[in-house]
Amino acid sequence: MGTKNNNDLFYTCSLIEYIGRQMKRTRKEVVDCLTKERIQRIYEFADVFHCEPIEKVADEFIQECHMNSGTFDNVQACRYKIPDYWDIGEVYERLIEDCYDDHKIVDGIWEVYHSWIDAQISNYNSDFYYQPRDYIAACYEEGVVL
């Protein structure tokens, strides 16, 4: 479908993951707080944001959105080795690349984070997030874990 290894998408998804961990919010909640317009901006200017430490960029968006802390802590709930936020960002990036055309990337971000698969990827006690990308894309498109 889309361009393989879309670095701007990778950064956008990793930032969403980072913010979710910082604020103890589901990734869907993070996306809702950010709004589609801000996500578009992050995606368009990812190469610029990437020059700054992710902590600083995350903090600026958290402040701008007036995002408060939640109670979703999938890192604390993890009984095994916690995947890095860049690793999880890559899972979302690949899924969105595999299922959406380049001109639909921001819609793809919105739809994926608002779908059932968000909870699956965020469950670090399952092995779902490190399955092959084509398997994850097939599950997403079928609407169930195959």
Rank of each mutant, 00 (worst) to 15 (best):
Y113C: 02
I121S: 08
D118K: 07
R133D: 14
Y135H: 10
S122K: 03
V106E: 02
I136Q: 08
H114L: 05
Y129S: 14
C139A: 14
S126K: 12
D118W: 06
Y124S: 10
E141I: 04
D134Y: 15
Q131L: 15
N125Q: 13
D107C: 00
A119Y: 02
W116P: 08
Y140N: 01
E111C: 13
A138N: 09
N123R: 10
D107M: 00
Y113M: 08
V144R: 12
I109A: 02
I121E: 05
A138E: 08
Y140K: 00
S122V: 04
D118T: 14
R133I: 11
Y130N: 14
V145Q: 11
E111K: 15
D127F: 11
V144L: 06
Y135K: 11
V145G: 03
Y135C: 09
Q120L: 10
I105K: 07
V106N: 03
G143F: 09
I109E: 02
V144H: 15
I105D: 06
H114D: 08
S115Y: 00
E142K: 13
W116L: 08
Q131F: 08
V106Q: 02
D107K: 00
Q131R: 15
W110M: 08
E141A: 05
D134L: 13
I105N: 05
E142F: 04
F128C: 08
V145A: 11
S126Y: 09
I136D: 03
G108W: 05
F128H: 11
C139D: 14
Q131H: 12
S126E: 15
F128P: 10
Y129H: 15
Q120R: 14
R133L: 08
C139I: 04
D118V: 08
P132C: 02
F128R: 10
N123G: 08
V106D: 05
Y124L: 08
W110T: 06
A137K: 12
W110K: 03
V112Y: 03
E142L: 07
E141V: 02
V112Q: 02
W110N: 09
D127G: 14
W110Q: 07
V145P: 05
A137N: 09
V106H: 00
S126Q: 10
C139L: 02
Y135S: 11
E141C: 13
A137Y: 04
G108T: 01
Y113T: 01
E142R: 09
A119E: 00
A119D: 06
W110D: 03
I105A: 04
A138V: 00
W116M: 04
H114A: 11
G143M: 07
Q131W: 11
N123C: 12
A137R: 13
D118I: 05
D107L: 01
Y130F: 15
S115N: 03
I117H: 02
A137V: 03
Y135V: 15
I105S: 05
S122F: 09
V145F: 11
V145D: 07
G143C: 11
D118S: 14
D134S: 13
V145T: 13
E141Y: 03
